[in-house]
């Protein structure tokens, strides 16, 4: 068998642009004189291009396989799994900014530090308490052009403040979760059961926010208190606030 003018390892490195300039130039000169060598180079380029083409796809937003996630045994894994839905969605689609009116309501409440006797559905309080927050206030929210909604305000042990707005969903509202970071403001939106949900917090750690939002989203869909095991894992997965 005749030994090729350039061995395959060098030729592949040439196609990958990994040879020093002098060696690359030498191969280029040989290829100019040797059609067979030029054909080998062309084949490798095609192969490389074909491979690059097989994976040129965008990540697809789809619900995670919930059952599988629940089988996980570590609290960290659960925290991550919950955070995932938010994180992945945030990476996959552009998010609309949080509405200024709701941000203003959140900021006004957070600044006032108001805490009052408040009640919320068990499915909501059980989840939110498991994440280390407690219900501080429930207030109606009136919009100028639609039916009223509810503002649930929650406080964490390190004075984290988080608002959940539940409003009748507008037509065409996206059911997928979107998340946005604007400076120190984090917001998340989704739709479930005919309602639109908006969560707002400032100065909150991203993973913690994602964990809470993912837990809230699941709760708004299932409308049931989570299983004891899930609550325990959520409690174990708490992360600190930045404030």
């Amino acid at each position: 068998m005749i030994r090729p003018a350039v061995d395959d390892v060098a030729l592949n490195a040439y196609v990958d642009g990994e040879l020093p300039p002098s060696q690359a130039a030498a191969i280029a000169q040989k290829a100019a004189r040797d059609p067979e060598l030029a054909a080998r180079i062309a084949r490798l380029h095609r192969l490389k291009a074909a491979l690059a083409g097989i994976a040129e796809r965008e990540p697809v937003a789809r619900p995670r396989r919930r059952r599988r996630a629940l089988r996980w045994t570590s609290a960290l894994a659960l925290a991550g799994c919950l955070a995932l839905a938010v994180g992945a969605a945030a990476l996959m689609r552009p998010a609309a900014p949080a509405p200024p009116a709701e941000v203003a309501l959140h900021d006004a409440w957070a600044e006032s530090g108001a805490r009052e006797m408040a009640e919320a559905p068990v499915w909501l309080t059980s989840v939110i308490e498991a994440t280390g927050l407690s219900l501080a206030r429930v207030a109606p929210v009136r919009s100028h052009d639609g039916p009223p909604g509810v503002h649930y305000a929650f406080v964490g042990t390190n004075e984290c403040r988080l608002s959940l707005f539940e409003m009748p969903a507008a037509a065409g509202t996206d059911s997928l979760l979107t998340l946005l970071v604007q400076g120190n403001l984090r917001s998340a939106r989704w739709q479930a059961g005919g309602n639109g949900y908006l969560v707002i917090a400032r100065n909150m750690d991203g993973a913690r926010f994602a964990t809470i939002v993912a837990a809230l989203k699941e709760a708004t869909i299932s409308r049931t208190a989570p299983e004891a095991e899930r609550i325990a894992l959520l409690q174990a997965a708490r992360q600190r606030c930045l404030t």
């Binding site: 990540p59 697809v60 789809r62 995670r64 396989r65 960290l76 894994a77 925290a79 991550g80 799994c81 955070a83 995932l84 994180g87 992945a88 990476l91 991203g206 993973a207 994602a210």
Partner: peptide, 14 residues
């Protein structure tokens, strides 16, 4: 692939 990708995001964030 989606599971793999998402699992990696989970690990990264956690």
């Amino acid at each position: 692939a989606e599971d793999l990708y998402q699992d990696a995001l989970v690990r990264a964030m956690a």
